[in-house]
Write a protein that binds this DNA or RNA. Sequence first.
DNA 1: TTAAAATATTCCTTTACAGGAATATTCCTA
DNA 2: TAGGAATATTCCTGTAAAGGAATATTTTAA
Lengths: 108, 108
Amino acid sequence: MNGQIFSALAEPNRLDIIDLLLEGALPVGDIAKKLDLNQPQTSKHLRVLCDAGLVEVQPIANRRIYKIRPEPFQELDRWLDSYRRLWEGRMDRLDDYLNVLQGKKPLN
Amino acid sequence: MNGQIFSALAEPNRLDIIDLLLEGALPVGDIAKKLDLNQPQTSKHLRVLCDAGLVEVQPIANRRIYKIRPEPFQELDRWLDSYRRLWEGRMDRLDDYLNVLQGKKPLN
DNA sequence: TTAAAATATTCCTTTACAGGAATATTCCTA
DNA sequence: TAGGAATATTCCTGTAAAGGAATATTTTAA
């Protein structure tokens, strides 16, 4: 799992940008206006999101339209797969650990 | 979506800790040893993970056993739901935006 | 009740990063 | 081709957070 994705999404404004772009691609100015950010910060956040591969740009005339790239979300989804077993109850390794302790089995 | 989760996972060592705990609950010392971290840093990272709700503790004798809490991962999973439409091809809003431009339809 | 093991916390320093303001760049249009 | 709109970049500053070292705390065991 690529940690850069988490870093990019850790910043609240960037998470907002992503959630906004889910509704559709937008140029920088619209993003800034809708989220009440000023333009330079918006561009900077978009830069980070771009570097992390979370969004991509398509220039149209004067503007640069940003849209979400699905790939990192797919990667996140695959990573989460490993954790689904957790809440599907097939795994309570704390109990396992307790058993290890009681059975005196070494832990490596 | 709670951004604290992303912040907690943005730190590489913490992501490693989470991936390690997926294999089973462990006390601090074992985590430190397996990841080649020193003990204080490990405790500090576990603190952050705890505050974010990603892990929980159960004291056993001298030790404190850390294990993953499934809930935040479920939250992440639900959040990702909104994005699954993206890679299922039911959504290419960049095209939508282009149509808006061509059709002179206002964008709000 | 004292020593030692396991863990948590504090203090300090350094670094990364977000925001603000100003400016540079790019591209269209008249 | 000059001006303006849209966007990107740079510089500066303040702040949050990570790592190291030392120390405090808790719990067990003798």
